[in-house]
């Protein structure tokens, strides 16, 4: 029983990371109908930036905030410089460009910071204020930070005019323009936010998996799985899906498949959900236009 609880809790901690990435993926998907295959590498690159800032002597939370700002601006720049010109190009062009970005970020990180693994600090105290063997302080911290971030994003989209405008621009761009919303700006904002959310995920997971250019590939796969499970049209669903994937991963890893087939597990989940319940748990069925 203890093991079960322990696995579930640590699954929730990883799940928080997957939830963040799933949210980032869904935000981009809703805005431009594409999967950002580079989301993981962007997060990894952001994390390296934070690492560099810390290595230069910045206090953790300063590095954290600066990294978020840089990621936000970087995300906006990617949208404006790279994706805006090919907005109407066929899907394959987009896939190719996402893959190109993956490659570029991966290689850039390798070039600047080398492919050796690096330790990334955890900002949380070494001990919890209460006695427990079930969960470690960093795991509690991950879940806490993620929940705070998700809450802020929820409030932003739900209750602010800009958040509302972003939703409108993503769902019906033409009507949005007719009420004076600049869809271009909203797209840029969306990319910036997604990049920042990804950066938080990267900084939270880096102390666990160590920092290196290839660290995010498998994690992104779980992020995708979370997004697909929750429903690609539902940001809230994606978050739930992410947490769910974290718990499933931990439990399946402990009781069913062992730790060595985790990626295969994600593959099976993705294919199965896409086949049998393409809208996910919380999404709407998307009618395919031909």
């Amino acid at each position: 029983m203890d093991q079960f609880l322990q696995q579930t809790l640590s699954g929730l901690a990883n799940g928080a990371i997957y939830a963040s990435l799933a949210l980032a993926v869904v935000m981009i998907y809703q805005a431009i109908d594409h999967f950002n295959f580079a989301q993981g590498e962007m997060a990894m690159f952001s994390t390296f930036i934070a690492w560099q800032l810390i290595a230069w002597g910045a206090p953790y939370w300063v590095a954290f905030v600066v990294c978020l700002a840089i990621s936000f601006i970087g995300g906006m720049a990617i949208e404006r410089i790279i994706f805006a010109p090919i907005h109407d190009a066929p899907a394959l062009s987009h896939v190719v460009v996402f893959i190109a970005l993956t490659l570029i970020f991966n290689a850039m990180a390798g070039f600047i910071w080398e492919f050796t693994i690096k330790e990334f600090p955890s900002p949380f105290p070494a001990e919890l204020p209460f006695e427990t063997k079930l969960i470690g302080p960093h795991e509690v911290g991950i879940v806490g930070i993620t929940l705070i971030m998700l809450g802020m994003i929820y409030v932003f989209f739900r209750f602010t005019p800009i958040g509302l405008a972003m939703r409108a621009a993503a769902a019906s761009p033409e009507s949005a323009r007719l009420v004076g919303i600049s869809v271009k700006k909203m797209l840029g904002l969306g990319w910036g936010l997604a990049a920042a959310v990804g950066a938080v995920a990267g900084m939270m997971i880096a102390p666990v998996v160590f920092l290196e250019p290839n660290m995010m590939l498998g994690i992104l796969l779980y992020g995708f799985a979370g997004a697909v499970v929750g429903g690609l049209t539902s940001p809230g669903g994606a978050v739930v899906g992410g947490f769910l994937m974290g718990v499933l991963e931990a439990l399946a890893g402990t009781y069913v498949i062992g730790s060595e087939l985790k990626l295969t597990f994600a593959l099976v989940v993705i294919v199965a959900v896409l086949l049998f319940r393409p809208a996910g748990l919380f999404g709407r069925v998307v009618v395919q236009r031909v």
Binding site: F35, G218, F224, A225, K262, L263, L267, L274, P278
Partner: peptide, 28 residues
């Protein structure tokens, strides 16, 4: 199964396949 997966979703499924493959080959 890919038949039911149009365009992007197929890209996603195959992406998952590619990411999972090395681990599968390493499986003890």
């Amino acid at each position: 199964p890919a038949l039911r997966l149009e365009g992007l979703f197929l890209a996603l499924a195959t992406f998952a396949l590619a990411v999972a493959t090395p681990q599968l080959l390493r499986y003890e």
